[in-house]
Design a protein around this nucleic acid. Sequence first.
DNA 1: TTGTAAGCGTTATCAA
DNA 2: TTGATAACGCTTACAA
Lengths: 338, 338
Amino acid sequence: MVSIADIAEAVGLSIGTVSQVLGRQDTRYSERTRRRVHETAQRLGYRPNAMAKALGRGRSSAVGVMFADLTGSYANDILASALPVLEAAGFHTLIGVNYWNPEREKQELETFLERRLEGILALPLDGQLANYHLVQEAGVSLVFMCDWLEGIPADVVAMDGYDAGLKITRHLLDRGHRRMAILGVDNQSEQLRARQAGIRSALAEAGITPDPALVRFSRTSDPESVMTLTREFLALAEPPTAILASVDAVALEVQEVVCKLPLERRPAVAGIGGLPMSGHGMISLTTVAEPLAEIGRRAAELLLKRIGKKRGACRQDLLRGELAVRDSTTSHPWKGGV
Amino acid sequence: MVSIADIAEAVGLSIGTVSQVLGRQDTRYSERTRRRVHETAQRLGYRPNAMAKALGRGRSSAVGVMFADLTGSYANDILASALPVLEAAGFHTLIGVNYWNPEREKQELETFLERRLEGILALPLDGQLANYHLVQEAGVSLVFMCDWLEGIPADVVAMDGYDAGLKITRHLLDRGHRRMAILGVDNQSEQLRARQAGIRSALAEAGITPDPALVRFSRTSDPESVMTLTREFLALAEPPTAILASVDAVALEVQEVVCKLPLERRPAVAGIGGLPMSGHGMISLTTVAEPLAEIGRRAAELLLKRIGKKRGACRQDLLRGELAVRDSTTSHPWKGGV
DNA sequence: TTGTAAGCGTTATCAA
DNA sequence: TTGATAACGCTTACAA
């Protein structure tokens, strides 16, 4: 691999000079020198060594982004809007995936730290305070996206879950539903808690006390669990007229069951999140869409600010999601209200 | 940041000793020394600097994986099976995304090279020979996944597109379709070419010469284009009884249009790829599923071999996809054949 | 069993 | 406008 030293030798200049010419767009060297250095670098096929550079400068100029998985378009959409911001500021971005495994989350964060990343954007697994303690002890800037950890003092950019819960529930109420089932997940992250709170508030507003039999929590990422609960709802003496899931993925599973029923027995279904799948004409799930692009952009900007000046109060940036009304709550027998 | 030198000083040993103790599981040092070094490292909160380590050893122990985007579960599933293999061999994995932009693909590959990655797993954009020439000139091991570039001598692990085309077409023929529309995409990658070839072979087998009016190519990633073509098919004097898309994403768009039609006018729809969405009960698209997990695992293994011994003939590992028969081709008026 | 010292490929500082 | 030289944090002979 050709190094700066090879260029220096080939062109008959010192290493320092070559480094300077190649590293800055300074004009403190003669036109002739600069031209010769660049030409030689080109000719020799020189490619800077990022690690040596980082070591020499004392900073990696890189940040990390941590996701639980890469399904749907979560990671895709967030990165699409975060990357340009980060790159414009001269940062390279490493992507970490923990596959919902706390152990792996720790491991990935650890490699982030070993690579001396200057900041981390993370969608944290719920309950893993220790992992992010690690990050903060290491003095690395941290911004949570989409969710957060009570107890870790970091900036947050996320959808306003309370508002989302409120919106979707009011929508169902508006359509005349008085008896709706609430399907949460046992993964009790702050974001999900907020959504639940919003849902309950909306019900309370309408003077409805949720029937305990209609409030259940499915095991995370276990489709079977969701289907079973759904069937139980439907088998009740007085089944719900609507099923509201606090996460789109769960709502989609609910639909798997519901779509087998004859039209007149199907409850309305709604979710929260805005998975791309929910927008397909054959699924058409009513939901509140998380503004992922906006979240990614703002999170990146906030991280840059943090990297700039470490200290300062934590910002909690909650963005409103948009209600997407679709067939799953409108083209039903009770269309137009009771 | 605490370094190996800090530990050495604190414990009263030389830097070399500390490095050895921390870096190997050798037993060539006294029990006492090893214990003290480890304890001190722990106490001081030492975290090795990955970049310094790489520089010192002359190898990065890292590889890169390049994707076009992170939607669906392509990247997710491939990584899920590739990462364990790579990690077991002591490699860290960097993820690159090019968002279908050749310029960005080049840029990302360039940073891979600047970080001195030892190998690259890539799902290449079609037609960008130059980008991967770059990689090979740099002497970095390369394995293509899912698709490949004619002209770049690299190992390949992908679904057998020809076989997939054959399978899905035969399935439609079996169900009695004689007049089917073929919807490709103008992105003519090798994988897509192979699928088209398979489709044509199956038709030829059945003695069918495709009606030119029924073979069209949509602009990649342009839903409008797909919908328009679909409507044109349906508006023909003699409309097709089935629409076969060479990519699931396109088939899903076709379904967007088709699902609005009354049942008796709906053609069957089929795709190739196996997007997770296609398996949802409300979509239920017949397709040939790419064995992503297997592709990821094998690609990683092949890459490791390549990193071991650079030279050797290129392997082209084509895996059979599995036909998933679903409602989109079975629950139709012509169910059971013409 | 431990220490010394020469790299690895840069950047940065300070003379010349 | 250039050239030495000391970092950066670690590995790895080789010497003691």
